[in-house]
Every structure is written in structure tokens, then in C-alpha cells.
Design a protein around this nucleic acid. Sequence first.
RNA 1: GUGAGCGUGGUUCAGUUGGUUAGAACACCGGGUUGUGACCUCGGAGAUCGUGGGUUCAAGUCCCAUCGCUCACCCCA
Length: 430
Amino acid sequence: MLLKIKAINGFKDILPEDIAIWRTIETVCRDIFARHAFREIRLPILEKTELFARSIGEATDIVEKEMYTFTDKKITMRPEATASLLRSFIEHGLHVSRPIQKLFTVGPMFRHERPQKGRLRQFHQIDAEVIGGSEPQIDAELMAMGQMMLNELGLDASLEINSLGCRECRPSFRSALVAFLDKSQDKLCDNCKRRSTTNPLRVLDCKKQSCRDLVADAPSILDHLCDECDTHFKQVQHYLDLFSVRYTLNHFMVRGLDYYCRTTFEFLTGDLGAQAAIGAGGRYDGLIEQLGGPPLPAVGFAMGIERLSLLLQNKADGVTPEPESDIFIAVLGERAEQTGSKLANALRAKGGRCGIDYSGRSLKAQMKIANRNRARLVLIIGEQELDKGEAILRDMQTQEQSSFTLKSNIAENCTELLKISANVLTTTEL
RNA sequence: GUGAGCGUGGUUCAGUUGGUUAGAACACCGGGUUGUGACCUCGGAGAUCGUGGGUUCAAGUCCCAUCGCUCACCCCA
């Protein structure tokens, strides 16, 4: 045997067994987007490298070392969706058609990190962005929508929120924080010693207990917000309360992308190993302008589909897969095969989900296939019945069998079978 | 980039101090019902034990190397 070619590290197949969960996630989220008047946008996977450098930030880990880039062509496989979406928004002047654009997109993202539980190199995100509004209601509504998605998927997650301030107030907080960290340099972990100069905000996010203890007394960004940011953040909380969305303030929360300002938030779970965030986002008011677009405020978030999927898999009452067929046609002998195959394809043309096997297996083997397909009905066409113009119709669940008259008009047979099938399927749903 | 753990049929694993033809469960195929699934029962097929080298009379087992996977750090969805 030749050497097998395997998928590359961090890239996963989504097998037929996994699809039910994926479709559930997508269906639930799409439905909720529709209820919130979001429209879908589909974007390319490759973009100019510069797009991500300018939006995510040159100094971030993502841009510095995690992007899949064709260096000779200066193009990159997108590590996140927001940059691409804004590029498209600006390029097509979408702000002209509506004062506020509510857009979502679903698809693969690529980051060259070491894979681990809940973290892949190709992963999928559901991404939502509201462009053109700075009102705190929008922030709150977006979080409420994210919470609705998790609720309707039956998942528990906590929502943590913070405000990072704006260009006006962040510098004063930053210098206060740096001053605080300087006093305790020797107590910080090596990593945080480095970060206290390169990206002091990140020290707040350190997971080491010693740093967490130290940082507990650090100045809070929330005490340094300018009046406008402070009012905005209080309003966000007011509307979250109004919408009955539960949340906790976490002034240690820092996001890894440079473009966030004001509101940031994360949906967190304790059931994903080291990966706590299943969805996260925030406001990025200056970014569109920075990418060459009009000065529009915006806010958005992304959910990780693989992470949602892992959580759904862990649930006892998991998602049940759809049957491969509703009606399976078992045939015995060549004449039956002729009748059965013709009927199967006619049924499909009329919208029926129909299975059939042509390998001439025993009836027993065909019944096993029907069972595995989770077909509710099996139409058994045998020589003896065929002579009488009949077939046997078996309900696999109730185990009841009845004789089915095969009319010469095949359309009539289809109509009759589809009627019985629909009938049987709805009665068991209730 | 750093660290730890693990590589045995399709899948999950067992394999004792190295010792005959490497086992099981699930899955698959077939029989028990010459025309009836899911349950039961009997049988069958399926493994270069990740790869290369070494030690030994003898290696799945010990040693070295290499590749791969997983988890964690980091960072993030």
C-alpha cells in the first residue's frame, strides 16, 4: 500500500457525523441574524497582507507571527473576518445605501499557532458587525444577540465586559498602569516584565497567580475613562440590564487586537480546557477611517464554531442527525429492481428522500442498510408481490407491515408514498 | 517558539520481568430465518505494532534517532 497522505496539522476534516452539529449552529445563528435584520456578506479568504497589518496591528501576535502569508505576492489568508468585511464595506461604499449596516459572515480563518484543544490553524467563525452607529444600545443589543445564540443552542456561558476607553483617555490610564507596574517590576513574571514595556495592558491578563495577585491592586481603566467613554459604558450596562442580559465587569479584560476601543466583551466557558472564549468582540470606532473609509463608528463580535461544536458534543442531549432517507426501497430480483429503481428516482424528483441498494444483497442486508440510514419506511418489492401488482410497506418504528398497491401510473405511487411518509413522520414528532 | 505525554486492525484500547501463529470491544461482511432491520447467536475479513537504526539466540516490549499526534505555555474564536 502506498503511503497515506494525511491532513496537515491544525487542519481538520468535518466528517458526516459532525455535520448535524455544524448545521444546527449555523441554522440557529442565521435565524437569529434574520430576526435582528442582519444581512449576510461573503468574503474572500485571501487579502492583501497590508490590510491585516493596518487593522489588527503590526505589533500584535497575530500579525507578527501567526499569519499564513504568501510573502512573494504580499497576500495573506485572513486570520479574522472584521478586516476583510471592512475592506469590502469601504470598497463598495456600503455606507451610502444604509445609514447603519448590520452584516454577518461565516467562514474559515487561518492562524499559524500550535494547535490544541479548541484551537486549530483553520477554524471557523460566525462574525457580526454593526457599522455606522455609536449608540450604546447597539453594543448592548449585539451582546444580547450573542447571548441569544448561546441560549438557543442550549449552552451556558458567562459574559464579561469592559471598556478600553478611547484615544483621549487610554494614554492617561496607560501611564498610570506603567507607573504602578514599575514599582513592582521584581515581582512580575518574566513574561510580564517584558510586557510591562511592550504592551502593559496585557499584564492585566496574565494567568500566573503571582501576577494576578499583584495586579489586583492595579489602577482600573474604568477609573480613567473620559466623561464620554464613561457615560457610554454606563449606558451599555443600563441597556444590558434593560434587555435582561447578565454580565460581569472585568476591568482586567484586554483584547489581542489593537483596533478595539470603548466596549469589549467575551463570552466565556470553563468547559473548553485552556480555551475559555467562545465568542468575543468589541467596538472599533476609528478603524474604518484608518483603513481609508469614512469616519464611521462600528462594533462587532465573532463566535468560534469549533468551540461551540465542542460544547454541543459534550451535552448529554446532543443533536440528533437527520435520517439519510425517509423511504428505503428494498428490491429482490431483477424485475423488482427495475420497478424499484424507477420508483426511487421518481420519488426523489417529487421531493422524497429515498434510498435504494443495487448490489443484489439479501433482503436482510438491505434492511440493515435501511436501518442505518434511519429510514422510517421500507418498501419491499419482491417477485411474489410484483405478480399481484403489490409491494410490502414496513414501518420500521412500529414494525407494522401493510400491502401497498403498485399502480401502473408511477406518479400516483409517489404521491401515495409521500403522503404516508409525511403522515408517519409528523405523528411521531408529536 | 517552549514543555510534557502518547503512537498497536476503520475506531477505542489490552499486551505481564523481552519468549511460539499480536488480542478484545465497537464498527464492517456473512450465516442462524433459502424474503425482514435495530436485540441475540455463530463465523469471517481486516495490523508493514508510526518510520529508521541499535542491543539480543529472540523486540510491540529495552536503547538511540526521526516523523506524527495530543495537551499545556504563549496568544486567541
